[in-house]
């Protein structure tokens, strides 16, 4: 594996982390909650896609994948919105730690439901795309890698435009800045928060399908690790800042891939957490984050 290949691998994983990190960062930006259940939304997305693809055996594989992806987005969006309404909304005005614990509860609940339905054992994810690798000059890049990076970048650009150019995007920015003031300006805060969860979950569904295509084994607890890493990516880039989540995701992916390639795969996670600690100590608000200080 050449250095360039390692970088490209890193961008591949990194773009998936970035997609998931966007969900964390949007939710944190708007309700100041570390949504621990976000990782498990990935799991929900993967299982949904798997079920659809095993059911739709008659169709060409890529059509199946497309339908599976849409279905996963639909299911995840529903889950995200319902979870927010049922489990987080009632706690919006209490201590923040109560919502954090509820999020942990939801995470456990999703994992256990999946265990009951699909058993705790791992299942193979049907690999849909068998396209030969693309050759660029002397090196070859697998089609999945290319697809993942392209899709992620497009989605991120789309999200950025959505948040900055549309009315609901403006509402989202307003609510994250000051919920009470936004309400006084006639913005429906609950709807805005629901939309935020919906978008975050839809992106997680995309991330889930792309992740499972890359690592085609799914188990009920599969969301924990990519979820945690995506979360770190969000913190790294500056939590609450959309471009920060993308930057953080790519950096995490590349750092992990280089460690795996040149040091040892056992130390990959240590490097990831090490970077997190250093960034928090040097610039706690993250690479692109804004500094805030308390007024006395």
């Amino acid at each position: 594996m050449t250095f360039v290949n390692q970088i490209i691998n890193g961008l591949h994983v990194g773009s998936i982390y970035a997609l998931i990190a966007l969900g964390y960062t949007m939710v944190y930006g708007i309700v100041k909650l570390i949504n621990f259940a976000h990782g498990d939304i990935i799991m929900v997305g993967s299982y949904t896609a798997m079920v659809i693809m095993t059911e739709l055996t008659g169709l060409p594989l890529w059509v199946g994948l497309l339908i599976a992806m849409l279905a996963a987005m639909l299911v995840c969006t529903t889950f995200g919105v319902v979870i927010e309404r049922v489990a987080y909304k009632p706690l919006r005005n209490t201590q923040r730690i109560a919502a954090l614990i509820t999020a942990i509860g939801v995470s456990l609940l999703l994992q256990n439901i999946a265990q009951l339905i699909f058993s705790p054992n791992s299942l193979p994810f049907p690999v849909a795309i068998r396209v030969p690798p693309v050759a660029i000059g002397e090196m070859t890049i697998s089609f999945i890698t290319l697809l993942t990076i392209t899709v992620s970048v497009l989605l991120m650009l789309g999200l950025q435009a959505f948040v900055h150019k549309t009315k609901i995007g403006k509402a989202m920015r307003a609510v994250s800045e000051d919920r009470d003031a936004a309400q006084l300006m006639g913005i429906n805060v609950s709807t805005t928060i629901s939309v935020t969860f919906a978008i975050g979950s839809a992106l997680a569904a995309m991330g889930a399908v792309l992740y499972s295509t890359a690592y085609p084994i799914i188990i009920p607890t599969m969301g924990a690790m990519p979820g945690l890493k995506a979360f770190i990516a969000a913190v790294l880039g500056g939590i609450g800042v959309l471009p920060g989540a993308m930057l953080g995701g790519f950096l995490m992916g590349v750092a992990e891939s280089l460690t795996n390639g040149y040091i040892s795969s056992q130390w990959g996670d240590a490097v990831v957490f090490g970077i997190l600690i250093v960034v928090l100590l040097v610039k706690p608000s993250g690479i692109l984050g804004r500094r805030t200080s308390e007024k006395v």
Binding site: A87, A98, L108, N112
Partner: peptide
């Protein structure tokens, strides 16, 4: 574990 997680959520919702 299902019961445990549901109880956790309910506890927090009704007695934060």
């Amino acid at each position: 574990m299902l019961v445990y997680s549901v109880m956790l959520i309910l506890m927090m919702l009704f007695r934060p």
